[in-house]
Design a binder for these strands. Structure first.
Lengths: 96, 96
DNA sequence: CCTTTCTATGAATAATTGTTCATATATTCA
DNA sequence: TGAATATATGAACAATTATTCATAGAAAGG
């Protein structure tokens, strides 16, 4: 695995995505079940706009996917690999 | 594993530490061999002060340890667990 | 249609974080 | 002891990132 400037920069971006409480809250909530934007907003007590902006970033990094059902847009964790990353996070931390 | 506000906040802090190119560069450099502040500064072409400030954060999170030898302070990765986290990072990313 | 509801988004603002600059402390060596 | 070298650190400044605010678009229901 190369550890040049380029890939270290990529890796730091990757970590940065997880390094925000709003995004982590969204991710761990979606780990339980898929949810639409408004529900996330109410549940986490964060404005709809803020949620939407952060979901955009999570989408950009392919951490969540979405499906439109009527007026609602349901978001969910992309796949098992992302779920694993999320579960590993707590393990790593608790070992430090 | 509890996923309350408190622990999600802790976890995001943990990720945040890795979410900076300077700190990652330092960490991956120290993964090769222990090094003193000045050498890191020269090698990475980052001011001594910036390196020192970032090392302080890495120390705070127990990711590095240091040993004073004369005027120099040699830094190294704390332990195998931290090394594992660093190596896992690239794997996770490459699978996304 | 018109209104309501849900979501997305650009721009402005607020908050956070990183770097630089100036300087202090400690150690070595002449 | 005095000068040089290595590191740390507080404060100011710069840069980045998140949130809010205002608003637009899309779908559903009356």
């Amino acid at each position: 695995m190369k550890k040049d400037k380029e890939s270290i920069s990529k890796l730091s971006e990757f970590y940065k995505v997880f390094g925000d409480t709003t995004r982590l809250h969204i991710l761990y909530t979606l780990l339980q079940k898929e949810m639409c934007v408004g529900d996330l907003s109410k549940l986490l007590n964060i404005s709809q706009s803020a949620i939407s902006h952060q979901l955009k970033i999570l989408r950009l990094y392919s951490l969540v996917r979405y499906e439109k059902k009527g007026q609602c847009v349901f978001y969910s964790i992309t796949d098992e690999h992302v779920k694993k990353i999320l579960e590993d996070g707590f393990l790593h931390m608790s070992e430090l």
